[in-house]
């Protein structure tokens, strides 16, 4: 028995057999922000065989309060998150193979990743619903479990989606929400992150040791500041005509017209972003939300414009946005999801 994992193996539902299974598994962690770093560190310490971690962003000072794998040096040097995460994870456990990918996760890229690398489990550590819809479609198409996790403020939510067993994200949501509250507009405290990570990693370990009967099977949410906790069994929400998990799936979010479209506007130092599907913003509400963050906001009946230092974000009612002051699509997407979720 490897001393390193002795306490985990003493835990009867895992045991030596479970540890052997964990060591053979490959987990794809999508996003290396707060949830991504928390999940990745826990899984690496648990001795998972391989982790692939993908992120398009770099480390900033505002990440250090909760993104547990990063240091001041990473923020100073603006190291891409995937790279900084890999470096730290290799220090934590050199037995685990860590693959870092600096890049965006679109439908095409995710399908390629899954086909080439054949992960056993997908961990959602993204910051937006568009990407989660893509993860959901890909997970059900290739029959790979995925674990949803999200948090904002002191609130968090999680659910493990098992193709062939549970309803899918599409069944639960029906449409993509346009709430507007994100960690960058409503803030986030680290215990909310850690609680979601705990829910995600617990289900991940059950899946990795193939203890399917122990899965929670409930959508859970909590608010650590308001001292609330809720859990709902959502099996009954599964829809037979769901385009993702129904009898005749079409996986709409993997198709071209449901994807977020980006374009660099020539000569304008701007990027246009068109989100997947139809969004419908209450512009007045959006303007008030931005104003509450102390941002400089201009609005008219057709659009809301926010000044963000060197960049300016302009949002139209249908969710289309222009990010002025950059030609970098990744940077523009980061800004878009940071403020619009």
């Amino acid at each position: 028995m490897n001393e390193r994992y002795s306490r985990q193996q003493l835990f009867a539902p895992i045991g030596e057999e479970g540890q052997k299974k964990i060591a053979k598994k490959h987990v794809l962690v999508i996003g290396a922000g707060a949830l991504g770093t928390g999940n990745a560190e826990a899984l690496v310490r648990a001795g998972v065989g391989k982790i692939t971690i993908v992120d398009r962003d770099y480390v900033e000072w505002s990440n250090l309060q909760r993104q547990q794998l990063y240091s001041e040096a990473d923020a100073k040097e603006r190291i891409p998150k995937a790279i900084a995460a890999k470096r730290r994870l290799e220090e934590v456990n050199s037995d685990v193979a860590i693959d870092a990918i600096v890049g965006d996760v679109t439908a095409q890229e995710l399908e390629e990743l899954i086909r080439e690398r054949k992960p056993d489990l997908l961990i959602d550590a993204t910051d937006n619903f568009d990407t989660r819809m893509i993860i959901n479609d890909a997970a059900y198409k290739y029959h790979i479990p995925w674990i949803y996790g999200a948090c904002v403020g002191s609130y968090g939510i999680s659910y493990a989606f098992i193709p062939g067993k549970t309803p899918c994200f599409h069944c639960l949501l029906e449409t993509v929400p346009t709430g507007g509250l994100t960690c960058d507009t409503a803030g986030i405290i680290s215990p909310a992150v850690q609680m979601v990570v705990a829910y995600q990693v617990a289900e991940a370990l059950k899946i990795l040791v193939e203890d399917w009967s122990s899965l929670r099977n409930k959508l859970v949410s909590f608010d650590l500041w308001k001292n609330q906790h809720a859990a709902i069994r959502v099996d009954q929400v599964k829809k037979d005509d769901c385009p993702t998990c129904g009898a005749h799936p079409s996986y709409p979010y993997l198709s071209y017209d449901q994807q977020t479209k980006t374009a660099v506007l020539c000569g304008r130092n701007s990027v246009q972003i068109r989100p997947a599907g139809q969004r419908n913003y209450d512009l007045q509400e959006l303007a008030e939300l931005f104003a509450k963050q102390g941002l400089r906001v201009d609005a008219n009946p057709y659009l809301v414009s926010v000044s963000l230092g060197e960049q300016r974000l302009v949002v139209f009612q249908d969710g289309r946005a222009l990010i002025h002051g950059t030609k970098d699509i990744q940077e523009a997407k980061t800004i878009y999801y940071r403020y619009l979720g």
């Binding site: 991504g36 910051d127 937006n128 989660r132 999200a150 609130y155 939510i157 960690c183």
Partner: peptide, 10 residues
């Protein structure tokens, strides 16, 4: 009554 609402942050 149990109420769970979806959020996107992470």
């Amino acid at each position: 009554v149990e109420i769970v609402h979806f959020v996107g942050g992470g």
